[in-house]
Design a protein around this nucleic acid. Structure first.
Length: 832
DNA sequence: GTGTTGCATGTGTTG
DNA sequence: AACACATGCAACACT
């Protein structure tokens, strides 16, 4: 059973290397304890003999430990983590991807991979070369496939998640994606069965490889391109890609702008195969060097001959590579695996053909470097100039068999802006693409509300920690280069939520945790179809979505839940529009207006969010509530329709009265200040705790500063008292000084004297005014009395100098004014 | 003076 | 910590 939404506190245990712990900050609004650790998932084991099979990402403390199956592309892993974080950050939904992660009823986490550990061990053994010196790739692949599939299952959902946010322009791409996803999900479903199947399954073919997209966006059958996979088997291009189970780590962006000049409507079929497991260092290549070659490229390379093309590796050109110096640094593993072995630094001459058939002669050599070698291809300048390549472009190396001729291809890097403009969030072809795209994704993570909330909530030292994980703001030149063709994941957290639906027909069981009802599902969520909500000028609300078949827009009831794929035939609400032949319900102008409003709405929402985030930095714990407030800010528009995207998760539509939807944004609006409902009480309780903590921190800081100042200014008047008494004394001095400064500068001379006459009760009362004022301002009057009670209960033993007046020389109002202003301006650490 | 070559070094990545 | 690799740079060759 999938434990789909089972938030629970764990005892901090970790399952060895198999734990992923996530701080659920944003889960505050779900009633979960802030800063408690919730283990969400785990996975894995080293499963392949080579390379980076085991990836562990660490995220400061608390540690975010993720071990991942497959010789993992870091970017894919990051995407996975991203997804988990998004989900974990959502109020009610903690999802585990199918079978990859499992929360145990007993309160721990389970590593699915570890459960099959013995299988892995066997697999590793299987990778040992056989008597022919050939790795038993079938076995290895068999296991890697099962393992990959585990990731693939999750990744497929990530893909869908990303893809479904796509806009209408890339519908054709999406169409293909869906096909791919179909395939992926099918293979995922078959995973368990396949685990122990003989490799003969590889001989089958999938329809995907035979699909091409016509210029009209239709999907057409094309001749499959054959190539030899890493194990010497004939395989169709995309079959390999999909069967390999890897997330195809290169972005189609680069392909879309390939030197092959694809037609606009064409979707190249990228194949990303692990390089041939031949030569030295097989299977050791980093994913970034895995060749991503389209059908067209393969066909172009093979030409009319009957040659089979074996993609070897590729490399993104660095500035040095593309510079005049004419040296192309070859990845060591690639050079050693696919080029002839060289024992002398001088190396040898290599004849390499380009895609046009022209033959170039390069010097393949190496330099000794730190007890290692650095392989270079010299004399590449003419070739690179001929191809008009520059830094950021990609060169690919393939081999034509049986003649064994090396062939050099290339891909031009994409214009980032253009890529973002045309395919803002979709990743065509079902591929999670290359690092560049992922660096782009992660670079923009803060744009995602879930992350942002998480990040903001962790503020303080998060940036650098996250840099390590997400490459946010990485200074890496490599990443910068890669980032040039980065895709931007224009998906906000609530947009992600918009896409999440409970599985159709599945009813949740209700679990109450801390007085909050949680819907718990036994099935993981599905990714629903994106739709746009609009409000008619007449006040009526409606939902619009696009048919996945004819791409016409259909009007639906606001409360309609849509499956990931929705067609006109599924339109049970309007029989007259339940066929693709029925005319579009939106004129182009209306559609444009609708889309524009949707965009504007999101833009404004984002701006508002950032503004609010900044304002709330001093109250990170309230971020989530603040976010909710922003999300609740609908945008009126002058058009006939206004976009009214629901601010809650997808199950919640306007009018929904569930616990999420009734939650007052930022404690205001829907509920009165005196409201004592569960939600309001929780909000207030948390607010109170937060303010108390804040106040305590500030008091400590101020006391410390006061002490420092005191010692610096007048060492002889160092307070002689010690312990708590000393601290309170300093605090009294501090506050007194503040009041005197605020009220009457002329009293400066006497502030110290005055301070000794002040009772601690009064001081604390004055200090409490800040919070009181804040609470009042925020309509939390019911908390004021609580606050006062707390202040009293937390007050130190009174140190009253009998006979001394307890009043202040200043009016409390002055202090209040000052302090309130201080509050509004946030904490000022330099303000003693 | 300019270009080339080979090595050294700094930085990022991986295990 | 070890490794990979992008790039800087000094030494050298050539014009």
């Amino acid at each position: 059973m999938y434990s789909a939404a089972r938030p629970r506190r764990l005892s901090g245990e970790k399952a060895g290397l198999c734990g992923l712990e996530i701080l659920l900050i944003s889960a505050i609004s779900a009633g979960l304890h802030m800063n408690n650790r919730y283990s969400v998932m785990c996975s894995t084991q080293r499963i392949l003999g080579g390379g980076s099979a085991l990836h562990v990402a660490r995220w400061g403390d608390p540690k975010l430990l993720v071990c991942c199956l497959v010789p993992v592309d870091t970017m894919v892993l990051n995407a996975l983590i991203s997804m988990l974080l998004v989900l974990a950050a959502s109020p009610l939904w903690m999802y585990c991807f199918k079978e990859l992660f499992e929360l145990l009823d007993s309160g721990g986490i389970n590593c699915v991979s570890c459960a099959t550990k013995s299988g892995f061990n066997r697999m590793i053994e299987d990778e040992k070369p056989n008597e022919f010196g050939i790795v038993k790739g079938e076995a290895g692949q068999l296991h890697s496939t099962s393992a990959d599939n585990q990731l693939s299952g999750a990744s497929t959902e990530i893909l869908q998640f990303m893809q479904l946010s796509n806009n209408a322009e890339s519908r054709g791409l999406r169409r293909l994606l869906q096909l791919h996803n179909d395939d992926s999900s099918r293979s995922f479903g078959q995973m368990k069965q396949e685990k122990n199947l003989p490799p003969a399954r590889e001989s089958g073919s999938t329809s995907l490889s035979n699909i091409d997209q016509g210029s009209d966006g239709s999907v057409q059958a094309v001749k499959p391109t054959t190539f030899v996979d890493e194990r010497g088997k004939m395989s169709s291009v995309l079959q390999q890609a999909s069967k390999s189970g890897h997330l195809l780590p290169k972005p189609p962006t680069s392909v879309l702008a390939t030197g092959l000049e694809l037609n606009a409507g064409m979707v190249p079929q990228i194949r990303v195969a692990r390089p041939p497991a031949e030569g030295r260092g097989r299977n050791q290549l980093l994913p970034r060097y895995w060749p991503r070659i389209t059908n067209q490229e393969l066909q172009q390379i093979s030409g009319d001959s009957n040659s089979t093309v074996v993609p070897l590796f590729e490399k993104v050109l660095s500035a040095s590579d593309a510079g005049r110096i004419g040296r192309l640094v070859l990845p060591k593993a690639c050079a050693e695996a696919f080029f002839p072995p060289i024992s002398q630094p001088e190396g040898l001459s290599l004849r390499i053909q380009d895609v046009k058939g022209k033959e170039w002669v390069f010097q393949f050599r190496f330099w000794p470097n730190n007890n290692s070698r650095m392989y270079v291809l010299e004399g590449v300048t003419p070739c690179i100039q001929s191809m008009q390549l520059q830094a950021g472009d990609t060169v690919t190396f393939s081999r034509k068999d049986p003649e064994g001729k090396l062939v050099m291809g290339f891909r031009k890097a994409t214009n980032t802006a253009a890529a973002q403009e045309t395919i803002p969030s979709a990743i065509p072809n079902g591929t999670l693409s290359n690092e560049s795209s992922f660096s782009g994704v992660f670079k923009n993570l803060p744009m995602i509300r879930g992350y942002s909330g998480l990040l903001q909530s962790l503020k303080g030292s998060t940036d650098t920690r996250l840099n390590g994980l997400w490459n946010i703001g990485s200074k890496s030149k490599r990443l910068l280069t890669d980032g040039q063709d980065a895709l931007e994941l224009k998906l906000t957290w609530e947009e992600a939520q918009d896409l999440l639906h409970p599985p159709p027909g599945i009813k949740p069981s209700i679990v109450t945790i801390e007085d909050h009802d949680f819907e718990e599902y036994d099935e993981p969520p599905v990714f629903g179809k994106r739709s746009i909500f609009a409000v008619r000028s007449t006040g009526g609300q409606e939902q619009w979505t696009q048919c996945d078949s004819c791409y016409k827009w259909r009007r639906l009831p606001v409360d309609a839940l849509l499956p990931p794929k929705w067609k006109c035939a599924d339109n049970k609400w309007d029989q007259s529009r339940s066929s693709c032949s029925a005319p579009d319900e939106l004129t182009p102008r209306e559609l444009e207006n609708l889309l524009r409003l949707d965009r504007d709405f999101k833009k404004r929402r984002m701006v508002a969010f950032h503004r609010q985030t900044q304002e709330n930095q001093s109250s990170p714990g309230l971020n989530t509530l603040a976010n909710a407030a922003i999300l609740g800010d609908n945008v009126a528009d002058s058009g006939t329709m206004t976009v009214a995207t629901t601010t809650k998760h997808p199950r919640h539509r306007p009018g929904c009265s569930c616990i999420v939807c009734i939650q007052p944004p930022s404690g205001k609006g829907k509920h009165k200040p005196t409201c004592t409902c569960t939600v309001c009480m929780t909000v207030k309780r948390r607010f109170k705790t937060l303010m108390m903590r804040k106040k305590k921190r500030q008091s400590e800081r101020e006391a410390e500063i006061a002490l420092r100042n005191q010692q610096a200014c007048d060492p002889e008047k160092k307070l002689k008292s010690t312990g708590a008494l000393n601290m309170y004394h300093h605090y009294a001095i501090l506050l007194r000084k503040k009041q005197d400064l605020n009220c009457d500068p002329g009293h400066d001379d006497n502030w110290q004297l005055g301070s000794t006459r002040m009772s601690m009760t009064n001081l604390l009362r004055v200090a409490g005014l800040r919070l009181e004022a804040y609470l009042k301002e925020n309509g939390l009057t019911s908390l004021v009395s609580d606050q006062q009670a707390i202040s009293t209960s937390h007050a130190p033993p009174q140190i009253v100098n009998a006979g001394e007046p307890q009043g202040d020389t200043c009016s409390p109002s002055a202090t209040k004014e000052h302090d309130t202003g201080d509050e509004e301006n946030g904490e000022n650490e330099n303000d003693p």
